[in-house]
C-alpha cells in the first residue's frame, strides 16, 4: 500500500517539477523546488529529479555555484541509438551549436578526438541521419554540421539572396530595378497630382513597408522576402545614386527617387576616358591614337 502511495506521489512530484521547470526556461534551483512544492520531503523530490535527469527530460547546469535544472523537450531529445560514447559526445557538441552549425575544427578542439576518428564518427552520424553538413556562404569550402532536423540560420545560408550557396545577383538586380521603378512611379504620380513642390516631395517618399507590399504583390519572388530584405535592396538603390534616404520622426527610413546633378561628364563620352589600356597608349608603339581601333569605331559610329 505504502509503496503504491509513494509511487503515486512520485509521479505527482515529477509532473509538478516538470511544470515548474517549463515555466522557468532559465532553469530552477533546489531552493525554487523547495519553495514551490513545500509539502514534499526533500528526499522524495531529489529522487524524482534524479529520475528525470536520467531520463533526459531535465538537464543539470551550474551557474555561479548554484545547481540549476532546465527542462528539455523530449521531442528534441533523440536517442543516439546503437552509438558509442564518442558519437554521443560529438552529437552533443553539434546539438549545442544549434542552427548556426559548427565547424569541424571546433568539434575537434571541443571533443579532443583525433581527425581520423572524428571523421569516422561524423560519417556514421550522417549516414544515420542524425546530423547533416551544410555549406556556409561565408566561405565556400567551409562545411558546418548541425542536427538533421534543423533549418540552417540565415547567416549560414545567406538568407533570401542565396540559392545553394550561390548569390543570386540577377534576382537582386531585378529587385533593385523594381524598387527604383516603384519610387520613380511614386514621384511621377506626385508630380501629376500637383499641389506645390513641397507636397510633391513629401508625396514621393515611400517607406520600406510600401515597397515591400508592392514587391510582394508583383509576385516576382519565389521566396518570402522580409521588410529588412527590401530595406537592404533599397539601400543599394541609394548607393546607385537613384534615390535618397531620410529618417522620419518615428525612426523609419523613407526613400525617394532623385535626379542626378550632372549628365555624364565629357571625359567618359569618348573612348579614351573609358579605355582600359589608356595607360599603355603612347605616340609610338602598337597602341597609339593615330591607329586606335576604338577611336576609329567610335568616329565611324
Amino acid at each position: 500500500m505504502q509503496e503504491e502511495d509513494s509511487g503515486e506521489d512520485n509521479t505527482f512530484n515529477e509532473d509538478s517539477i516538470l511544470e515548474l521547470a517549463k515555466s522557468k526556461p532559465n532553469g530552477i534551483s533546489n531552493n525554487d523546488i523547495k519553495n514551490e512544492i513545500p509539502n514534499v520531503l526533500p528526499e522524495m523530490w531529489t529522487k524524482s529529479v534524479n529520475k528525470l535527469l536520467k531520463a533526459g527530460t531535465l538537464e543539470l547546469f551550474k551557474d555561479k555555484g548554484v545547481l540549476l535544472y532546465k527542462y528539455k523537450d523530449p521531442s528534441t531529445k533523440t536517442e543516439v541509438k546503437g552509438s558509442d560514447n564518442e558519437e554521443k559526445v560529438v552529437y552533443k557538441i553539434i546539438e549545442e551549436a544549434g542552427n548556426k552549425g559548427i565547424w569541424i575544427r571546433d568539434i575537434r578542439f571541443k571533443s579532443n578526438l583525433n581527425m581520423t576518428q572524428l571523421n569516422k564518427v561524423l560519417k556514421s552520424l550522417e549516414t544515420k541521419k542524425f546530423i547533416k553538413a551544410v555549406k556556409s556562404v561565408a566561405a565556400s569550402k567551409k562545411k558546418v554540421y548541425m542536427l538533421y532536423n534543423l533549418e540552417p540560420d540565415s547567416s549560414v545560408t545567406g538568407g533570401a539572396w542565396y540559392q545553394d550557396q550561390d548569390f543570386e545577383s540577377e534576382f537582386v538586380d531585378v529587385l533593385n530595378q523594381q524598387c527604383y521603378r516603384f519610387l520613380d512611379g511614386k514621384r511621377e504620380a506626385a508630380i501629376k497630382l500637383g499641389g506645390g513642390p513641397l507636397m510633391c516631395r513629401n508625396r514621393s517618399y515611400a517607406s520600406a513597408h510600401d515597397v515591400h507590399k508592392f514587391i510582394s504583390e508583383l509576385g516576382i519572388s519565389k521566396v518570402q522576402l522580409s521588410v529588412d530584405d527590401i530595406e537592404s535592396i533599397l539601400y543599394t538603390v541609394v548607393l546607385d545614386n537613384k534615390a535618397e534616404r531620410t529618417v522620419n520622426p518615428s525612426g523609419e527610413y523613407l526613400y525617394r527617387a532623385i535626379n542626378p546633378f550632372l549628365k555624364s561628364p565629357g571625359i567618359v563620352r569618348t573612348t579614351c576616358g573609358i579605355c582600359p589600356i589608356v595607360d599603355r597608349c603612347a605616340d609610338s608603339g602598337l597602341i597609339n591614337p593615330k591607329s586606335c581601333k576604338y577611336l576609329t569605331d567610335w568616329l565611324n559610329d
Partner: peptide
C-alpha cells in the same frame, strides 16, 4: 558635391554600375 558626382559617374562609365555602387559606399 558636383565633383563627387562626376567622379562617381566616371567610375560608373569606366567600370560598371556595380563598381560605382561600391565606390559610393
Amino acid at each position: 558635391q558636383l565633383t563627387w558626382e562626376a567622379v562617381e559617374e566616371i567610375v560608373n562609365e569606366k567600370f560598371d554600375s556595380k563598381a560605382s555602387r561600391i565606390f559610393r559606399l
